[in-house]
Simulated scan of single mutants.
Amino acid sequence: MMVLTEYIKSYSFIKQIRVFLKYKKIKTFLKYKNYFIFLCFVYFLWRLRNLTKRRYRNLIRINKDKRYLATSFGNVAYISYSPVGIKPKGLIVLIHGFSGCSENMRRLYKVFVRKGYCVICFDCYGRGCSDATEYPNSPDIFCSMISQGLFALQVRTKVHIVGYSMGAISAGEFCKTFPHLTNTLTLIAPAGVYTNMSFVVKHLSFFPLGEIFVNLIGYFLLKKHYRESSGKNYNGSVENLRKYHCNIKGYFSSLLSSVRHMPWDNYDYSTINVPKHVIYSDDDEVVQLNSNNLSQLGKITFDKVSGASHSRLISIDSANKVIDFIENS
């Protein structure tokens, strides 16, 4: 008994126990390694989805020129202007495009105000200074945003609505749902007929590749959008670039949700029963309209602009064309 006790206390016994336990652990791991790898993969997917949902919170509002209103799907930022010293001729509601915000429509609304119209321009969910929403970024969601925004602002007159690019789909959905609240609809480079999106964006946006993709190339998307909206190349840090976009946590996730849920090539404009006008370019690299597919928009009038790229259609010339259409309708 004494010998056994001494042996148990000895270092060699403890060493043998450690070797046995170590071997046991390795053997157990090898036996269940496939289950372990599967559980790690599931945990990774859960963390990735959770990270994406977290991005919809923590809005940092740094634009002092914007106002905010509450909707069912989050707070929405907007800018509004009225002509000074004259009676307004009407109200124009502007809806921006896929990756932009209300500031990108500045060239349009400055002309509208100068011509005597009141202007409201919303930041769509996840863009500009608006909250992102975890619900799908579909036409219904953006239609709800517009209607709740106008209700919160106590708009009691019919509006002229102008939609650019993806915003044209949102504007069209509002006109379908609330034709009694709409005077005219102007579509500038409207998505929903044929939208030229890259293969990667169009076909590799499913979960979890989409989440990984926007995290990897998000910075490059910001640089591209800065270049398109300002006409300058960006050489600064990512922190300053995010401040340019108001540091919205859900920006990339909202873009991804829009890619997944907006009808980029098959939206039905023909059932809209308000006067419609289309402004498009024959050199638009994103939305490709021509004489063959214009008929899909239903009964319309249109202006064709030669030589303008997608972003260059937001111009003073386009604003004047919108005013001409509104005043002659």
Rank of each mutant, 00 (worst) to 15 (best):
S306Y: 04
L181Q: 13
M145Q: 12
D140Q: 12
L181G: 05
S80P: 12
V214L: 06
P263Q: 03
G163H: 14
L185A: 08
L59T: 13
V193N: 07
P179I: 02
S165Y: 05
L185G: 09
K249Q: 14
L69K: 07
R57C: 04
H160G: 03
F29M: 08
L221Y: 11
L39Y: 11
F98M: 11
T177W: 04
P139F: 07
G218C: 08
R312C: 02
S309V: 12
G167H: 03
V238K: 15
S138D: 12
F29R: 04
V119E: 10
P88A: 08
N266Q: 08
R312G: 04
V159A: 05
T71N: 01
V214R: 10
M197F: 11
H261S: 06
V119G: 08
S12W: 10
N75D: 06
R47T: 14
S12R: 14
H245D: 10
S254K: 05
S102K: 06
D282T: 14
E6T: 14
V155A: 13
R106M: 04
S130L: 02
I272C: 02
S144A: 13
C129E: 11
F20H: 10
H245E: 05
V305A: 01
Y11S: 09
S82F: 03
I212L: 13
N75F: 05
N320V: 00
R61Q: 10
K9F: 08
I17T: 13
N183A: 09
C143G: 07
R107W: 06
T301R: 00
D282L: 10
G218W: 07
L51S: 15
